[in-house]
Design a protein around this nucleic acid. Sequence first.
DNA 1: CGCTTGGTCAACCGAATGGTTGACAAGCAT
DNA 2: ATGCTTGTCAACCATTCGGTTGACCAAGCG
Lengths: 118, 118
Amino acid sequence: MADPLSRVFSALADPTRRDIVARLAVGDATVNELAAPYDVTVQAVSKHLKVLEEAGLVSRSREAQRRPVHLEAEVFDLMTKWIERYRRQAEERYRRLDDVLRDMPDAGPTAPTEGNPP
Amino acid sequence: MADPLSRVFSALADPTRRDIVARLAVGDATVNELAAPYDVTVQAVSKHLKVLEEAGLVSRSREAQRRPVHLEAEVFDLMTKWIERYRRQAEERYRRLDDVLRDMPDAGPTAPTEGNPP
DNA sequence: CGCTTGGTCAACCGAATGGTTGACAAGCAT
DNA sequence: ATGCTTGTCAACCATTCGGTTGACCAAGCG
């Protein structure tokens, strides 16, 4: 599971982690602050942050004994690019199908338009 | 893990599944066709398709004994919306930080309101 | 009819995941 | 030096996941 795309998708496949990302979009926060709203231990949240960090979605700096967590938004582009590519392709195909159906108002029961003579 | 967004992200967190989606963007295909390139059993691919279907990314119709798989591109919007929202928010915040730094051309080495006595 | 083709279901296995508790390090404050 | 705060690491547990094998169903075809 080395590839970056898998890590990003996987990281965001968890609702708690998505919520953390949502809250970090507003502003940086410490681990304890982030952990407060959830009814899990702070260690669990620390694990979540590790996952987000390994996916490149988040970075932690050092500031006294606090470790402010910062959202790294660039990685989103990786996903967006992948998604857009295939969404567009599928839509294009959909549009083309419409054209075909319009151009073929009376398709016969047997449709050998795919004639691929050996 | 009932929520749709988690299911979609989770479904796309697997490289094989992403590849299947990529190939379905080109055109519908049967399970056996889809399974061919991978060196796993057809049952494994069937499981992958089930995951994709439960995420709403794919639909299967019935056609004789074949089950053509079709890519359902709308669900992508769910992800795109979520991603765009927080990406935009984070970028906005980044831009604002730049403004702050520009408006504060002579920030001392000691942080402003955060008393850091020697 | 019987058989081959296309696909799913069920049970199982090893590895990864999300969670817990407990110990511990690093800073700051007494 | 002692202690409190913030956070991580390690070990463990239950569940999920990706994969396998084997049985099975549903259609077409000889």
